[in-house]
Design a protein around this nucleic acid. Structure first.
Lengths: 349, 349
DNA sequence: TTGAAAGCGGTACCAT
DNA sequence: ATGGTACCGCTTTCAA
């Protein structure tokens, strides 16, 4: 059933039917009701493409996930961001077009997307430290919003981000308050913007208190269990091992926990672990009990926010960038305690 | 730059330009080259909506992820399936439209999708045991393919699935061969089709060897670490505890490992763990070393296959269902060993 | 081998 | 308040 047929059924013109359905005020309430009822009855749905062609808008938003060929898997965080965004789109009647694109041909890809008119705007995921995509998108003129930020990018742009720096500053502060002086940082991939900011917060906290930042206590890598395990293992076997860890992901924290268990080191009493957890409920390890001290931010919520802001930008057509910085929430769990005395209380073994 | 402008530039008609670009044979090679060069020069891209409107195809495929309100997070498996599918779409020039939809209004949603003409076909994720979506889609007439299967659904339909039953049958067989008689099954959510099949394989292996299937050794739930931990913990404190576990996900296996560690039970020598791992490289725990014995299947590969098959269906317009069953690969790691003797060798503590 | 023109299914301007 | 009609950008039939 299309507009013409519906109009025919009603004995009205396409124009009137279209107006009735789209809430134009000049249609009489009587006709509007008639039209609506008929549309309902025949379950008429306007054709998206035709509508888009006529209006010049596609009513779709693109999400671009960068996939470097090195990683087999897509970072599960994206799934949650997108779930949050999806809610917003569903409510606003927008479609979500997902593209996974390799770093190689990204530029061409964005240009294509814009000129083919598939989407009205775009959300950029996983920004790197000085991300070339931002100036590119700016140049293309496609409305976009970044989930995360890209420092050094000297263009102004819209973003939604969690305050990674302050999160790690506060987390490190907590450990310092507990007396820890050797704090290992197990961070994400070096090029990622969030990792840079997290290290920044960590460094600042230490420096402010006059604590030396030991580069051997900083590990970077993909946030896998293996990375957490290998990094923690290595650091724990140093002559002067860390008494606490700051971990960039719950997955890596599983690895840290394993390394500790293997060396018979008790979490909480002998080793403190604070983890940045993006609310990935599948991977939360506590089961109701706060096993780790965590710095949490709802990625899903951020996704929703990002989508809503992008839709605003698209609809208003305004050019001034919108930015939203979310503070993460520090939840103290039983994996964090004061520095053990040297005669310490082994709880295991 | 649109077709009209491009044609104007070339002094040709839109018709000819369109034909040249779309590989129609009646265009002379000379003109074709001229046209191609110009299109290149102006980086002309045909408008997707206009093309779709004219051809009746949208060149887009939908992926529908069911989100029950109970789960906060989207199962990370979907991310990988979609990554695989995305590759196929990119190559074939299709877009991927992602929808996350609650169980409540699914029916209406599918009808909408079809009648608005947003997509040419659809991939159904996370089928439940007797999934009502399949007959619905059949009725609507939208080409679709299921990732996974839905037993009891008495319609014939296309699917791509890993052989869950044989995977768990073989895994249980391995443990039985090693002498295990008490094998705990830590499975996924009860309603999911894959969970039913996995339990089926497990049961069959036991029954065939005359081993009693103890319902207390079967746990179902979301595949979180907490679930693995709680289930393993409970089973391990039974009077007659399991000597081995079959776990439906690497995440839950982390929980099993934790429960074992807490009770000072050594993996490999005192407790065997076989895990079904969907190749989620972020969560693999081995770091090159096979820590767990695993039954692996590449979800990404399955996603790609699903996409390719759906595209075939769309293009051929044929109605006969295509089906593809993938066998998972059993990789024996060091977490699996024979049943410990009662005087057993504690390696920990 | 090329071109004119009629759709595809809507929207929106201009009349009435 | 309602209708006629010219688009939107492309494909495709028919004619030349």
């Amino acid at each position: 059933m299309n507009l013409r047929e519906l109009a025919l059924q009603l004995g009205l013109s396409q124009t009137t039917v279209s107006r009735a359905l789209n809430g134009y005020p000049e249609v009489s309430e009587a006709t509007r009701k008639r039209v609506r009822d008929a549309a309902d009855k025949f379950s008429y749905r306007p054709n998206t493409r035709a509508k888009g062609l006529a209006t010049g808008r596609s009513m779709a938003v693109g999400h671009v996930i960068p996939v470097s060929d090195q990683h087999e898997m897509v970072n599960p965080i994206f799934a949650d961001v997108i779930a949050g965004a999806g809610e917003a789109y569903a409510e606003a009647g927008y479609d979500l077009v997902l593209s996974l694109v390799g770093a190689r041909d990204e530029a061409a890809f964005y240009r294509d997307l814009a000129s083919r008119g598939t989407i009205d705007g775009i959300i950029v995921h996983g920004p790197r430290h000085n991300d070339p995509r931002l100036p590119l998108l700016k140049e293309i003129g496609l409305p976009f919003l970044v989930h995360g930020r890209s420092s050094l990018a000297d263009v102004s742009y819209s973003w939604v981000d969690v305050n990674n720096r302050s999160a790690f500053y506060r987390a490190a502060g907590l450990l310092l308050d507990l007396g820890h002086r050797r704090i290992g940082l197990i961070n994400g991939l070096a090029g990622m913007d969030f990792a840079v900011r997290r290290e920044d917060g960590y460094r600042r906290a230490l420096t402010e208190r006059g604590i030396h930042v030991d580069p051997d206590l900083i590990a970077e890598g993909e946030m896998t269990e293996a990375h957490g395990w290998a990094s923690a293992r290595e650091m724990l076997s140093m002559p002067d091992p860390p008494t606490a860890f700051l971990v960039s992901s719950i997955i890596s924290a599983f690895g840290v926990r394993r390394a500790a268990a293997e060396q018979d080191i008790a979490l909480g009493s002998e080793l403190s672990v604070v983890v940045f957890d993006d609310d990935l409920s599948y991977f939360r390890s506590d089961g109701g009990v706060p096993q780790f001290t965590s710095v949490r931010s709802s990625v899903r919520e951020a996704g929703r926010m990002a989508a809503e802001m992008l839709l605003d930008i698209i609809r208003e057509g305004s050019d001034e960038p919108r930015q939203r910085l979310l503070e993460a929430e520090l939840t103290i769990g039983r994996s964090t305690g004061p520095v053990p005395t040297h005669e310490g209380s082994k709880t295991t073994g």
